[in-house]
């Protein structure tokens, strides 16, 4: 196990450097000069541009910029934006909001999709099973911003049940609606997997044995089937935490939630390369760490997956 974890950690480091380098190049080798664009159609004086370019190291070759950036990262310094704001400070003030939103969304995904999956799995083939499938797929095929804006108009403006912008109302009031919309995009996958896994497990030999021993349906499902059926679902749910953070980018922008997603959205709009790289790097890091934790967790849940 220790060997496995240390090998994975080493891989993680390599992937981390590779991915950040690609992101860094993608952002800073884009056509166009972010300094010249600072003023929109009102160009900055030549001397100002020159000064800013050398201040942010944009006159150095890209590999040197990247190494400088890594050097800064090693000291915990995420750099500054082209307008002189500290990227680290900005992210630090916004992560708590995003984590709250993502965890709320994730909990809603777990609750709703496991319930739906259970209901569909236990009565597979029924009308309920089919409507769960249809409903979740229809919901998931609507683009996220369409659903978001519709929810704003219906729930926020017409019904007035929830605020449509900002998180001033605090948790849970301000977070529930956006979290629910993010959660919708995990429902179809997770509930299908839950259902399938449940149906498979219910057909396995050990369940027949348990039934033959005279165990009640409730105990069979609750004590034995659930644990076995849960393993692939836990895997998927954990991986979803990563894509869920992606969903927060759009939803935070639509609902004006002051989190990391909105920061990334605005950074891309304003061509703030350092900010884009900073946020993307932390997102990559989180994704890698969650994946590692999932792999370790799944071996605990399912002894058949052993890492020696």
């Amino acid at each position: 196990m220790t060997r496995y974890v240390s090998r994975r950690l080493l891989e993680l480091v390599i992937v981390f450097f590779g991915v950040t380098f690609v992101i860094y190049c993608a952002v800073f080798l884009l056509p166009g000069d972010p300094i010249a664009a600072l003023g929109g159609d009102r160009p900055l004086p030549e001397s100002v541009q020159k000064q800013l370019r050398s201040r942010y190291g944009l006159d150095l070759p890209i590999w040197q910029q990247y190494l400088d950036y890594l050097g800064g990262l090693a000291r915990g310094d995420f750099g500054t934006t082209f307008t002189g704001q500290s990227v680290g400070e900005q992210m630090a003030s916004r992560w708590p909001t995003t984590i709250k939103l993502a965890l709320t969304a994730w909990s809603l995904t777990v609750l709703i999709s496991v319930a739906l999956g259970l209901a569909a799995g236990l009565r597979h083939g029924s009308a309920l099973d089919r409507s769960v499938l249809l409903g979740t797929i229809v919901a998931e095929s609507v683009p996220i911003f369409v659903l978001g804006i519709m929810a704003q108009y219906i729930v926020g403006i017409t019904l007035g049940w929830a605020p449509i912008a900002g998180v001033d109302d605090g948790w849970p009031r301000a977070y529930l609606l956006p979290a629910l919309i993010i959660a919708v995009y995990g429902l179809a996958g997770v509930s299908r997997l839950m259902r399938g896994s449940l149906v498979d497990t219910m057909r396995s030999d050990f369940v027949r044995t348990l039934r033959a021993k005279g165990m009640s349906q409730g105990d069979v499902v609750g004590l034995h089937v659930m644990r076995n059926a849960a393993a692939p679902v836990v895997n998927l749910l954990a991986i979803q935490l990563g894509s869920l953070l992606g969903g927060t980018v759009v939803i935070e922008a639509i609902f004006n939630i002051n989190g990391v997603g909105q920061l990334l959205y605005k950074a891309i709009q304003d061509q703030e390369g350092t900010l884009v790289v900073g946020v993307a790097t932390t997102l990559v890091f989180i994704f890698l760490v969650t994946n590692l934790l999932v792999d370790i967790l799944s071996s605990v849940l399912d002894p058949r997956i052993r890492h020696d």
Binding site: L30, P31, G32, D33, P34, A36, A37, G40, D41, P43, Q271
Partner: peptide, 9 residues
């Protein structure tokens, strides 16, 4: 164009 920067360049 891709954005402001590419256009002005």
């Amino acid at each position: 164009s891709v954005g402001w920067a590419e256009f002005s360049e």
